[in-house]
Amino acid sequence: MDQEQQFLQAFDDHADELFRHAYFRVSNRETARDLVQDAYTKVWEYVAKGNTVEQFRPFLYRTLNNVIIDEYRKRRTESLDTILAEEGVHEMRFDELVTGGKDEHEFALDAGQVHDLLATLPEHYRRVVVLRFIDELQPQEIAEMIGESVNVVSVRIHRGIASLKKEYARRMSDTQSP
């Protein structure tokens, strides 16, 4: 299969998941659609110049990630420094950060709630949470994509999930309180 066919196959195979990723990153359906189209367009432009893409999926994700960052820069919803600043992180293994155990609650989330909850996260947390639990990328893959260390990624995932749970619990208590 040549690159042209592979490109269209990559659309058929990954357009939905990329859209999903973009949607939960930018919280707007139309913008997410535009961003996905932009990402595919940019990837094709790269191929059209004579380059070869071996693995379209990670390449598309990386491109989409860059497009989304550009989108955030335009919006300036957060300080650029905040978005890209490194956090002070401790050496921790991802395994230790897997949630479970006595802190678990019973969760029943729908897509709308997922969307609303993710919207409360700062972008640098939201990005890694979406990549991990919606796109099902492994921390190593996420680290390569966003150019951070695995440790940083792991910590952000942990903190992001913790924040989501906290927000979810707060909302549940608000709805249940008299």
């Binding site: 357009a15 999903r20 659609r33 997922v114 949470v129 919606i134």
Partner: peptide, 11 residues
């Protein structure tokens, strides 16, 4: 839950 619910979102 996060993962499962999110899968319902698509083009």
């Amino acid at each position: 839950q996060l993962h499962t619910s999110a899968q319902t979102v698509s083009l």
